[in-house]
Design a binder for these strands. Structure first.
Length: 453
RNA sequence: GUGAUCAUAGCUCAGUUGGUUAGAGCGUCGGAUUGUGGUUCCGAAGGUCGCGGGUUCGAACCCCGUUUUUCACCCCA
């Protein structure tokens, strides 16, 4: 017999684990709805042509591809098989893939369903995504993303609302976080004024190392990337950038005074910070120039949320993309969105043990019986309780009392209703409080009264 | 994709320089207790030592390969 197993980087979830995960999903969902977002779903698999080329070269490698059905070798020539070119072969034998994120399928959804939606379109989507990554801490091959996006509106009020959503979700989950924010236009502005437009990535990577290796080493590293001395000199105020957000913005304003796009980015951030002040967003927001995630498609704000008490990478990320639907033939639709990483939030909650004690998913009362007659006697009682919305179950056979009681104990069911001949004769049940051990003989009405408290 | 690391009962783990029949705790099942769980006591079931090959008189232990676990890099939630 073979030992059962599941693919690398995937996980099973037990009932108590699911209760905890549902707590996360429900919290996030509640907040999304509070801000007027509506749910959609898209298929687990997309056409490979929809997915390929949207996440850069790395992303293409991390896509799970689905083998065509039937005799997929039949469509190949001898030449193609003997060439052993995996990359070329892939397009011939696989035309579907598992979704890699929710943003690209959403862009596809918007373009395809434009007749059914009206802008601004506020959608949320909570579904698993798959990446053929090598699993490690906080990294899985199957994990859930909880996306909120609004498309068809340039207003920075959308950025504000997303920040408010982050603020509210983590307040409810009781996780201490910091929101890091950057703006792609500022990064473009920096590249512009030092005349090295294609070096943004190198520069942000170097800035990121400031804390670790210090100013001198960072300058050496930038120089080694072929950036001119003149440009490095101009970069110095940016490398030394610190202080409050407004202090940082003031420095950027003077450094970027010659860059129209850079100043636009600064003013966007000023507006967003102003909104957050006015709306009294509690979470700390930090301007962080090293944030360069998703550089290929973000065009404005870039967000990332980090947990303060657990080392686990970012637990939420997102930004504004001006033309994501462009690749699917629909130009000029701007969107901004963020994605909550449910599985990393789950890890954070697990390490900090932040789950609420009362779980409403649990069974409230278990009926146990001494014989077949008692079993049948209990059935109408169950209906009465269930009709009142009380989670109730019955041990389905008159097993030994010890076994039935152990079952209740293991499931942490707070009440047990014991049914025997004496109880039946009086039209009552023996209600036992499993925590205190007390038990009393009760009628249906008395039972309902106790369970409703 | 690169570099480390782990794998023994359902779970967590022992297992001496390579030496008879591979152990413990927890869990499961049964009993002490035929109307009472969470405490206690007794008993039982449960193993191709990840898989394949090699060295050896002899391998859970040493060597090679492979898969898996965990971790770092890259990238990301």
């Amino acid at each position: 017999m073979q030992k059962p197993s599941i693919p690398k980087g995937t996980r099973d979830f037990t009932p108590p684990e699911m209760a905890n995960r549902n707590y996360i999903f429900n919290t996030i969902k509640d907040v999304f709805r509070l801000y007027g977002f509506q749910q959609i779903e898209t298929p687990a698999m997309e056409n490979l042509s929809t997915l390929m080329g949207k996440y850069g070269e790395e992303g293409d490698k991390l896509l799970f591809k689905i083998l065509n059905s039937g005799d997929f070798l039949n469509s190949l020539t001898e030449q193609e098989i003997s060439d052993r070119n995996s990359l070329k072969l892939t397009t011939k034998i696989s035309e579907k893939g598992l979704r890699y994120d929710l943003t690209v399928p959403f862009a596809r959804f918007v373009v395809q369903n434009r007749d059914k939606i009206s802008f601004p379109f506020k959608r949320y989507q909570i579904q698993p995504v798959w990446r053929a990554d090598r699993p490690q801490k906080g990294r899985y091959r199957e994990f859930y993303q909880c996306d909120v996006d609004v498309v068809g509106s340039d207003s920075l009020l959308n950025e504000l609302e997303l920040i408010q959503i982050v603020d509210e979700v983590y307040r409810r989950l009781k996780i201490n976080v910091v929101i890091k924010i950057n703006n792609r236009k500022i990064l473009s502005g920096i590249a512009e004024i030092i005349g090295e437009a294609d070096k943004i990535v190198d520069i942000t990577v170097a800035i990121d190392k400031m804390d670790k290796i210090g100013l001198e080493k960072v300058n050496e590293e930038i120089a080694s990337k072929g950036i001119s001395e003149n440009a490095i000199a101009k970069l110095q105020p940016i490398l030394k950038l610190n202080g409050s957000n407004s202090e940082k913005l003031n420095i950027l304003k003077s450094v970027l005074s010659q860059s129209e796009v850079g100043l636009k980015g600064v003013s966007e951030l000023e507006t967003i910070f102003g909104f957050c002040d006015m709306m009294q967003v509690q979470t700390k927001i930090e301007l962080d120039l090293t944030l360069a995630r998703g550089l290929n498609y973000y065009t404005g704000a870039i967000f990332e949320v980090k947990a303060l008490d657990v080392e686990i990478g970012s637990i939420t990320g997102g930004g504004r993309y001006d033309n994501l639907t462009g690749v699917f033939g629909m130009e000029g639709v701007s969107g901004v969105g963020i994605s909550f990483g449910a599985d990393r939030i789950y890890d954070v909650l697990n390490t900090l043990n932040l789950y609420p004690e009362t779980s409403t998913e649990n069974t409230q009362i278990l009926f146990v019986s001494f014989g077949d007659k008692e079993l049948i006697y209990a059935l109408p009682w169950l209906s009465v309780l269930r009709n009142k919305g009380i989670n109730a179950e019955i041990y389905p056979e008159p097993a030994k009392m010890k076994k039935q009681m152990t079952y209740a104990d293991n499931k942490a069911i707070p009440y047990v209703a014991i049914v025997g001949e004496t109880e039946m004769n009086e039209n009552k049940v023996m209600l036992k409080n499993m925590k205190s051990g007390e038990q009393i003989l009760v009628s249906v009405d008395e039972l309902l009264q106790i369970l409703n408290n």
